[in-house]
Design a protein around this nucleic acid. Sequence first.
DNA 1: ATTGATGAAC
Length: 548
Amino acid sequence: MLGVSLSCKITNIYQNLLSLLDKCKSMLELKQLHAVVISSGLSQDNQFISKILYFSALSYLGDINYSDRVFSQLCSPTIFNWNTIIRGYSNSKIPNHSLSIFLKMLRLGVAPDHFTYPFLVKASSRLLNKETGVSVHAHIIRTGHEYDRFIQNSLIHMYASCGNIVGAQKVFDSIQGKNLVSWNSMLDGYAKCEKMAMAQKVFESMPEKDVRSWSSLIDGYVKAGEYREALAIFEKMRAVGPKANEVTMVSVSCACAHLGALEKGRMIHKYIVDCGLPLTLVLQTSLVDMYAKCGAVEEALLVFRGVSKSQTDVLIWNAMIGGLATHGLVEESLKLFREMQIAGVEPDEVTYLCLLSACAHGGLVKEAWHFFEILSKRGMTPTSEHCACMVDVLARAGQLTTAYQFICQMPIEPTASMLGALLSGCINHKNLALAEKIGRKLIELEPNHDGRYIGLSNVYAVEKRWDDARSMREAMERRGVKKSPGFSFVEISGFLHRFIAHDKSHPDLEETYFMLNFVVLQMKFNCRKDNKERLLNDTLTEDDLHLF
DNA sequence: ATTGATGAAC
């Protein structure tokens, strides 16, 4: 009698422990339960260990390192355990570990099953390495798994991610009984490669469509820079398609951001609220960015302030700091950076880039040097973009010699954007000799870029060297460099109007030019006023003395 | 148990 009741109790404890593991809410809790498991002598009991592995490898609250340690202590892991750890790594920042685990598995003579390969293929997709993907595919064929639809679908995605759209299409064509995931993967493959004609074709041939189909198509148009088309598809989706979700709205708000379509952006925001879509951090970040890019900094701040501090991450801070910076709200931008540090969010490379851009807009040379140095002190390597931004700061401030020296002292070759920043600095601060030198270098660096010829031609124009200016245009035509027309969008009462340089087809042309001339006059007036004040306030720096 | 997607700078 005693034996039966004791074993009942033990079974109860086991069941309780298992259900506690199922309800686990954090790594701390998991570790405590793991400790109970170990002290009960169950450290090799697969029922318990499988759950511990599963949570730490796959939960977004998990810790793949912990699961790796647990895994490596297992005497005889089951195939489920192997798959869990491979899957965990395939979602992690180090997907190549999935492959190492897989190889280890083969060495030990453990046979992978049909669950193993989709994870392994996903890891190869995320590695963006063509050869790895191909050898995984070869292995799949050798082991006779090539007709598994889950595996085939993941192969489509893998080939498309690695840029081999032909390979993706081949796998797609070979599938007997394609399902929605097969079609969506193919569609997304074309959308990712910006082959929108093909993506459109796949979309139209699909026997059924879901949110992901529509979202992939919309996102493809956004990535391809065809923002108006993206918005048009979204309107169609609203009329005849499934309900949009977070991913759809992120793409759509990104399209509005690029178009500067504020009214449309506001409608999108309203739509999100009205549909009761959850305002996730990702979505809030894209709304902040959209409002900032559309010039509505106040509204961007409103969304930003609506996020509770404890839930923010570096991306949304960057979006807001960068947004303030591009609007010349330099003080506010730097203030927000301090706030970010108080909130305990670690700045990253992009944060420093936003700060440098703020400094460039505010003429804050000293502060820029400070941020540039801090970047390295915090263990980050300044990228060519950071250097370009630094050149921009110096060049805008008129410290052309320092900017030039900065470029020469860099351990990396100067990029076009650095020289471009220096060139506009040279033009603005009237160092035309240096401008010409840089302008020539830029054409050498990017002989197929129309803007580079225009850049040098502008230098000549300032000097009134009309023949030289014209020769630049001729050189461009001779080399067959395509001129991309400059255009801009203006949104009036929710309608987007496009203005192309020299295009005279818009019905409100006269009225527009009248207003434009008025604005230009106003700007010139303000500019003269500013310059006068600047001349009264500024002292010349050492650099200026060298150059002028 | 499995496959398909989204945010920040330039």
